[in-house]
Nucleic acid binder design. Structure first.
Lengths: 235, 235
DNA sequence: TTATTAAGAATAGTAAAACTATTATCTCTA
DNA sequence: TAGAGATAATAGTTTTACTATTCTTAATAA
């Protein structure tokens, strides 16, 4: 019996990404407490927002201690960086799966758009990350990850590489359709930002958008994104 | 002599906008200390970033007290909201001047693009707001203004109306070119966001863009924005 | 001229956030 | 069974983000 419990203690379930060392003090994916930190921080940030989120509140939720949180992440900003990186790797992973045998460049790009937008509804088959809530955090909080005075320093440590690699993937797909398109990287990053912002606007500042997101249904966003991207990319 | 000093004390110089009541506790544009708060907060936020910025440091800079800062703004988030609102009203004002006698819709939209991008180089003729630094703050920090758990509450109080009115102006200009364009508001907000993000990326995460901003020269951004917008809007 | 008001300064707090350090305990593994 | 690694428990410190109160001075209105 104790054997089962002690074994359970170390079981790592589902998908796990290799993330840059600088995104944590100790990799939370590898321990039970680490996974609980991820799970509950996603719940709590979604619930009260990053500003009001503290390690003390998180520890209370988990029934652990503040000090234990600090063994995994230096501060809540690093935790946010971890969560966003994880998310972008997840999107990258979904794109690679869904475009595996697709040769038509236009179909590829459309699948990429779909993957960016619907990453939330696919299940990572790990128990500690709720992609749907994480998606909401990405929409609401992720811009804070790179809008900071420490961007350059953090960038040197490779903190943003998953985001940049995802943008590179999209840029390549754009060029596959139109090799002379002059702004593939700008369009790629703009697609990612637009996918976030337009949902946020639809939900909070509806005069800033023309789409609706009824009950989280993102199909209007997908139609619009396709319209924008295809009109721009095609000759 | 005392007369001159006491009179100087109350001189309000240059342009002044009427901003929503909820953006301050006491309108900083109306007093000497208020103007110094605006001026030095712009300098200080630009220098150390919003995260490290505190009213204590600001008071030290101004040689006033923390408590006095709180008589103008409830907290630093409200100060950020004030600065961003001021900036968007400033851009709106520039657009209205520059498009005054322009009837050709395409020329109008191009002037709008130019105004959004080059708002920084025009002088407001008031001494307490440095538009160039403020523009950098907008680029680096303004997204934090509406990415907060209190968006809905703040939106109810009309906090974001200058941004929304500016977007509405742009949307109308888009429809003037192509009345059947299906996403005028989304394109308008995306233009504003893109103008910020692409500069930020060029300066800090260059793999996310194709433009360069050498020594703050924004001409490549303008060319790209025109390309994107015109290709999308025109039939 | 004086009384009133408003602006700002000075002082002195508090509560919470954001950490850090130390020691103890517990469990797994060698 | 000893040692390593993970987590807990405890107890701090510093800084931030405020609030409250009193005092002084300047502007203004009667």
């Amino acid at each position: 019996m104790t054997f089962v419990i002690s074994k359970l203690y170390n079981v790592i379930t589902g998908i796990k990404f290799s993330l840059n060392d600088s995104l944590y003090s100790r990799d939370p994916q590898n321990t039970e407490l680490g996974q609980r930190i991820l799970k509950h921080s996603i719940n709590l940030i979604d619930e009260i927002g990053l500003e009001d989120f503290t390690f003390k509140k998180l520890a209370l939720e988990i029934e652990s201690t503040e000090a234990s949180m600090y063994r995994y992440f230096e501060n809540k900003h690093q935790l946010l960086l971890f969560l966003t990186s994880w998310y972008w790797q997840w999107v990258q992973y979904l794109i690679s799966i869904h475009t595996l045998n697709i040769d038509d460049p236009e179909r590829r790009l459309k699948i990429i758009i779909k993957s960016i937008i619907n990453a939330t509804s696919e299940n990572a088959l790990n128990e500690y990350i709720n992609e749907s809530l994480l998606h909401r955090i990405i929409i609401n909080e992720s811009s804070k990850a790179y809008h900071t005075h420490a961007v350059d320093e953090e960038n040197k440590h490779g903190i943003f590489s998953s985001y940049k690699e995802l943008a590179e993937t999209i840029a390549r797909a754009i060029l596959a359709i139109n090799p002379s398109f002059p702004y593939p990287h700008s369009l790629a990053s703009n697609m990612l930002e637009m996918a976030k912002n337009q949902v946020h606007f639809a939900q909070h500042l509806p005069r800033l958008t023309d789409i609706k997101v009824p009950k989280g249904d993102l199909s209007e966003l997908e139609t619009m994104m396709e319209f924008f991207v295809m009109k721009l990319v095609k000759d």
